[in-house]
Amino acid sequence: MNDHDTTGRSTAGSDPATTAAQAHRPSAWRSLPKKKGTWIVAAGMTCAVAGLGVFSASTSSAASASGTSASGTSAAATSTPTATPTAPGSGGGARSGPTAGGSTGIVDTTSASGFTFATATGVKVTVDETAGTAYLRGTHPTSASAVHKGSSVLVLGTVDTATITATRVVVQPGGDGGAAAAKKSGVIPFQQGTPSPTKSDGKVPSDYTEGEGTVVSGTAADKATTAAQSVFAGGIVDRVVKLADGEYEVHNISINWPHHVFVSKSFKVLGAE
């Protein structure tokens, strides 16, 4: 489940809804030891979730969650990591091409066609803007001019490795690009040659099989991505999978942990591994 790197820039692709091998599983969950008290509570990256609250009058507010982790690992990367998706068919949700997801970070450069930003773990992300890209400042509609160097942003859209064709950009006033959330939840940056640890936090399905479920797009993918990024910032969500029981698995690349974030039907973070 370790994601390795080769960043490529891509243009827009449509959101596929590819069905992976379905595993008919009961809604069984295992509760893991809670390291710093209660694991999942409501709250998170306030402006990121608030941005979903308007969705240009087309979607409802996304619920967010915050948590704690036993890991004291710093989210600061020692070098500039890049992103590589899990190959289709190799587990982690089959897909036929770029899928819905997103990421959070601090804007580095801007241009007429988009911008770049760095995540809390230093992953470089390229954002392609289109005529249909919507912009929010917190909960209020704004324009592309609100995005400038140093802005904290949540970007939702179609993800192809480390390039996002943006459908929505939320500028988070006073945000830190997810650095505090990443540190609090123990996100582990990607380091070449370092294997991903085998650990879990919160509630994860006891019989989850990587590759099961249906890849989703649209409102559900945006809400699940926002919830996951509000707690486990630092990586790139390259797909959201709806499981047989209606919960979601949000898949992260470009970090060593966590690769799978589990989100409830009401878009609250349940756990991660």
Rank of each mutant, 00 (worst) to 15 (best):
residue 210 E to T: 07
residue 216 V to G: 05
residue 214 T to I: 15
residue 240 V to D: 02
residue 240 V to A: 09
residue 214 T to S: 15
residue 217 S to F: 03
residue 201 D to W: 11
residue 236 I to P: 14
residue 246 G to T: 00
residue 240 V to F: 12
residue 210 E to P: 07
residue 243 L to I: 08
residue 200 S to Y: 10
residue 246 G to L: 13
residue 249 E to N: 06
residue 220 A to I: 09
residue 248 Y to C: 00
residue 199 K to L: 09
residue 242 K to T: 06
residue 203 K to T: 12
residue 245 D to S: 03
residue 210 E to V: 04
residue 206 S to Q: 03
residue 229 Q to K: 07
residue 235 G to N: 10
residue 229 Q to P: 05
residue 244 A to P: 13
residue 231 V to K: 06
residue 241 V to Q: 11
residue 236 I to M: 06
residue 235 G to V: 13
residue 224 A to S: 05
residue 213 G to L: 03
residue 243 L to D: 13
residue 249 E to W: 08
residue 236 I to D: 04
residue 231 V to S: 14
residue 230 S to C: 15
residue 209 T to V: 12
residue 230 S to F: 00
residue 219 T to H: 08
residue 227 A to L: 00
residue 224 A to F: 02
residue 199 K to A: 14
residue 227 A to P: 03
residue 215 V to N: 03
residue 238 D to S: 15
residue 223 K to F: 04
residue 239 R to I: 14
residue 238 D to I: 10
residue 217 S to T: 04
residue 216 V to L: 14
residue 232 F to Q: 04
residue 226 T to V: 15
residue 231 V to L: 15
residue 202 G to W: 02
residue 243 L to K: 03
residue 246 G to W: 11
residue 206 S to R: 01
residue 206 S to F: 05
residue 248 Y to H: 06
residue 242 K to E: 14
residue 227 A to C: 11
residue 241 V to D: 12
residue 237 V to Y: 01
residue 238 D to N: 14
residue 240 V to W: 05
residue 216 V to H: 09
residue 243 L to E: 04
residue 203 K to L: 13
